[in-house]
């Protein structure tokens, strides 16, 4: 006797349809609420925004189809858009400084002296505070004249006083510096965790081979910190492109619109007191989305490589 080619579909004990297909059906039942919610509030709105961006719309009345009109206006010399775009680039590049700064502080703190745990927490805790409060704290820190602590400190060295947030040349940098504060703390904690897992045998072996200082760091430690660096990179890029709270709180886009970024400009166009230009706002959001999509694709691709390796 050979085994039947068709699997036996009639087991002796009659079971319910659910019992029969339990393994195949259960994951979908568990996924259903999550997927529904996520689709309704995240996935579908992305496509809706694309659709809205082809219209002129005040958010209340009828939408008027304008085709690529919004994009033509946006990319055809909208000064505010250009300023926002360049500021986004500044954010991206300068925000990445959080990674080496975080690494530096984590190396400084990676010791086992008394009270070091408390030090680590205190160094980290700017990240826990809301960006709104960090923004306020820094805008008072930067207060012009002798009101701000910063000017009092640099005054000791005979510099200043500066009006950082009041001048279009320095305002964006002032905001980025405020943003770097919690972001550096985040990168620091990632690296502290990474350093904890560095293989001590490799370090000892490298020491015996005479490696030390920056050579040890560069050739032995940093390669082992690669997973931490990847995550630091992901969260910093996303953070840089999401910058909104700091700008809204510290300068509200000013002075003279010099601190706008795309996320802020989009909000301003769609929900400002000058009227709701939702179509135009959606077009700005789409441009920002495509900038982000480049990074998202890269992140997902890296994660996919890991997944394949894991199977």
């Amino acid at each position: 006797m050979t085994a039947p080619a068709v699997p036996d579909t009639h087991p002796p004990v009659k079971r319910s349809w659910y019992k029969e297909n339990e393994i195949a059906v259960t994951p979908w039942l568990f996924l259903l609420p999550g997927i529904l919610f996520f689709a309704l509030y995240v996935i579908i709105p992305i496509f809706q925004s694309f659709w809205i961006s082809f219209h002129q719309w005040d958010g209340l009345g009828e939408k008027t189809w304008v085709g690529l009109g919004n994009y033509e206006r946006l990319l055809g010399g909208d000064r505010k858009f250009e300023v926002s775009f360049w500021n986004n680039l500044k954010w991206l590049v300068l925000y990445l400084l959080a990674i080496p700064m975080g690494l530096f502080i984590s190396l400084f703190l990676n010791q086992t002296v008394r009270g070091i745990r408390l030090y680590k927490s205190l160094f980290f805790f700017p990240f826990v505070i809301s960006q709104v409060v960090v923004g306020l704290v820094f805008s008072w820190f930067y207060l012009p004249g002798d009101q701000g602590l910063l000017n009092n400190v640099v005054g000791v060295f005979g510099l200043g006083p500066y009006n950082i947030l009041g001048s279009p040349d320095s305002a964006t940098y002032g905001i980025i510096a405020a943003g770097l504060w919690p972001q550096t703390a985040y990168c620091m904690i990632l690296y502290l965790t990474g350093l904890n897992a560095v293989d001590p045998e490799q370090v000892e072996a490298a020491r015996l081979d005479g490696a030390k200082g920056h050579k040890m760091l560069w050739y032995v430690i940093i390669p082992q910190l690669k997973p931490a660096t990847f995550i630091a990179f992901v969260v910093t890029i996303i953070g840089a492109l999401r910058s909104f709270d700091f700008i809204a709180v510290m300068t509200n886009g000013g002075p003279f619109g010099s601190t706008r970024v795309l996320s802020f400009y989009m909000f301003e166009e769609s929900l400002s007191e000058f009227g709701f230009r939702m179509g135009y706002g959606a077009a700005i959001a789409v441009v920002l989305f495509f900038i982000m999509l480049g990074f998202i694709t890269y992140f997902l691709w890296s994660m996919y490589q890991d997944e394949k390796g894991a199977r």
């Binding site: 509030y41 995240v42 992305i46 998202i296 992140f299």
Partner: peptide, 16 residues
Amino acid sequence: MFIAGNFVPFQILMVP
């Protein structure tokens, strides 16, 4: 899909 959705800019979701 869950990961990607988590990374999108808030502004693309805002109006809808």
